[in-house]
């Protein structure tokens, strides 16, 4: 599903953000990527979304080598993936329904499909009742649920979550992780970048640890081993 072969990414200044990374994530896996700030986690997400191109190496997602995707085909490629961020990135002037529907509108999904799929995905994340609420009327956990609903509404095969619990209290963090686990059980490959030691240790999933752009450990049922 996701294959990195000796991937490096350097910016014009400083040390490489990712240095010779190789990994293989199978379909339906749940994977944590952990590491300190500057370890290359976010760069990894950007490379997978083809926001950045690697300086060296090869990235393959769902059988497609990313370097071969033409610029105009990038949007279509990105529709295979859902993305969730630490700061939710919701549209503040639109309600919950519109925020989720937005993801379908911009890929030209027919309105009759949107009318069915948005309520269904809001039920999945437990926000069916709050479809009219604006983001500022929701708690952090609820806002992240909306973001997850938006990421999932187009049925992506991969869900990338960049610090999804970074702005949440422990209770909400656990609820979000349980939701992601549920999504994973339904068949979506989930890759979570996180700092949350407690969750990583408790969930006993595959853990990839990065340090200064290098993958220093990759364990099937690992824990948070990273130390400053």
């Amino acid at each position: 599903m996701i294959i990195l072969e000796n991937v490096s990414k350097s910016y014009s200044t400083g040390a490489p953000a990712i240095n010779g990374a190789s990994l293989h994530i199978k379909k339906g896996e749940f994977v944590f990527v952990v590491g300190n700030s500057g370890s290359g986690k976010s760069t990894l997400i950007k490379l997978l979304l083809k926001e950045l191109n690697p300086t060296e190496g090869k990235i393959t997602v769902n059988g497609t080598e990313l370097s071969r995707i033409k610029r105009r085909k990038v949007p279509k490629f990105r529709r295979q993936m859902g993305v969730v961020f630490q700061d939710f990135r919701l549209l503040r002037d639109r309600n919950v329904y519109e925020n989720v529907a937005f993801a379908q509108r911009v890929i030209q999904t027919p309105t009759r499909v949107i009318r069915k799929s948005v309520p269904a995905i809001l039920s999945l994340v437990g926000l069916a009742e709050k479809y009219k609420a604006k983001p500022k009327q929701l708690s952090g956990g609820e806002q992240q649920r909306v973001a997850i609903a938006r990421a999932l509404v187009n049925n992506p095969s991969i869900l990338l979550a960049d610090e999804p619990t970074g702005n949440l209290d422990p209770k909400n963090s656990w609820e979000i992780m349980k939701l992601l686990e549920e999504v994973n059980k339904r068949g979506t490959t989930v890759l979570v970048v996180t700092h949350n030691r407690e969750i990583v240790n408790a969930m006993q999933k595959r853990v990839i640890t990065m340090k200064k752009g290098i993958i220093i450990s990759d364990e099937e049922k690992g824990g948070y081993i990273y130390e400053n």
Binding site: L49, E51, R72, P75, K76, F77, R78, R79, V83, R89, L91, F102, A103, V106, I107, Q108, R150, N154
Partner: peptide, 17 residues
């Protein structure tokens, strides 16, 4: 800017953006 960023990540085409 933020909305455009989200649109791009979701897979909106150049035309739609």
């Amino acid at each position: 800017k933020e909305e455009i960023g989200i649109m791009k990540l979701i897979g909106a085409t150049d035309f739609i953006v």
